[in-house]
């Protein structure tokens, strides 16, 4: 179990680094082939309302989102910085675990001005194999759902 917690912690650290270092194509590869990525405002989540901020129901949609960001979208020029809290890991089966962790994301402009951009939590299902861990499901519940400016790079 402690080995699994260590591996999950590494997965989350790589998750944060791939976004913060603008390696979004590497970020996509942290998802399993059947993986999904959803970003949901807490006000909807708590009321059982289905509207997301971002909804990628499969890996193709995750890739499309990044392709659009790279090629079609304009957004505020910034660096992201993720701080992810200690994960709570629950084993579901020999090949799957659930992970819950809080996150904080700061954004910094290219002029060096930082602001708190988003806080919330991850509720993930993670696929466990001998060689690597990957996200089967990543749900981001956003407490700061009055999104400042806009949401382009993944949370």
């Amino acid at each position: 179990m402690s080995d699994l917690v260590g591996r999950v912690t590494n997965l989350l650290a790589e998750y944060a680094a791939s976004i913060d270092e603008n390696r979004l194509e590497d970020w996509v590869e942290l998802f399993a082939e059947a993986g999904s990525y959803r970003v949901v405002p807490r006000e909807n989540h708590d009321q059982g309302l289905p509207v997301p901020l971002i909804l990628c129901r499969n890996k193709k949609m995750i890739r499309d989102r990044i392709k659009a960001l790279r090629n079609a979208n304009e957004y505020n020029l910034h660096h992201d910085l993720h701080i992810i809290g200690a994960p709570r890991v629950v084993v579901i089966s020999p090949t799957e675990c659930s992970v819950r962790a809080s996150y904080v994301v700061y954004q910094t402009t290219l002029e060096g001005q930082s602001r708190l951009f988003s806080v919330g939590r991850y509720e993930d299902r993670v696929q466990v194999t001998d060689d690597r861990l990957r996200f089967l499901e990543k749900l981001v519940v956003v407490d700061s759902f009055s999104v400042p400016t806009l949401l382009a790079t993944p949370l």
């Binding site: 289905p50 509207v51 997301p52 909804l55 999104v147 400016t149 806009l150 382009a152």
Partner: peptide
Amino acid sequence: TQHRLDQSNMVGPAGLISMEDGEAIE
């Protein structure tokens, strides 16, 4: 309903065809 939710990807603060407005205004 699922189709409308899929299309909600295009609108709002993270919308593929609307996120730019936040930046253009600022």
